[in-house]
Amino acid sequence: MTDFNFVRENEKKNGDRNDSLRSPHFAGKGEKAENNVHVRLENVSLTYHDKTAETLALNSLDFDVCRGELLGIVGPSGCGKTTVLSIISSIIKPSEGSVLIDGINAEERRNVCGYMLQRDELFPWLTISQNVLLGAKVKHMKGRKDYAYALLDKYGLGDFKNRYPQQLSGGMRQRVALIRTLATSPEILLLDEPFGALDFQTRLRVVEDVHAIIKSEKKTAVFVTHDISEAISMCDRIVILSARPATVKKILDLSAIKELAPLERRESPLFQKYFEDIWKNLQNKKD
């Protein structure tokens, strides 16, 4: 439905942006790498309190997201992957440490984050165009209509502007949800298992779509998933978290396959190697 080929060719024309995809951890503290850091987590820890106990959910997470990078976060279920996104978008305040966006405290940069949830959460009483513009309305952003409509047109939903969400298929609804997130022109996309509610067929297709959309709109994105193959098929780098309390176990660089589209990646010989690497890291409880 979308023009992936066009998107991919465009990417190639832009040339190799290998630099921007390399983690500053590996690139050293060179000035160039520093400039490329878009989001930085510094020793972020979070402790929950409830009636029975206090739980350490995140234990000094320390990693960067580069500009234009699609960073994956995988980890055992319940390890606090979603919490990481909530902290980046300042919905939750970390107990310790800080999040910097463009070197500034994330709380002052809340509006640059766009969040996409597992379920589309489209409001059934609003039309597709009203749903897409909801974020802009909430953020008092004027004149987003043309941009949002252009996005709908571009990604094959132009004819559905005045329909209601119930009239769309699951995959289409998910794309509408992504466009709703994009409509406020966020610099950073936070994707929280956005394909979890879809069936496998639709999922493969939507992954392809979403990957193409993120790359063509040149967004920085943090993508949380429990699905290892999905992470490998979309991301430029993958942060592997341990079980609770979550720590960074390993950061896997996928720049060798970054030029490939999701479905092509699944056929790459490297795919299996990456899969096993992540799998092993998720399995052994202790390093």
């Binding site: 509006n111 969040y115 949830l117 379920r119 959460e121 409001f123």
Partner: peptide, 14 residues
């Protein structure tokens, strides 16, 4: 009211 939709509003800083 659906918790997911409330979370959505949170993500929009509503």
């Amino acid at each position: 009211v659906d918790k997911g939709k409330l979370t959505l509003m949170d993500t929009m800083n509503a």
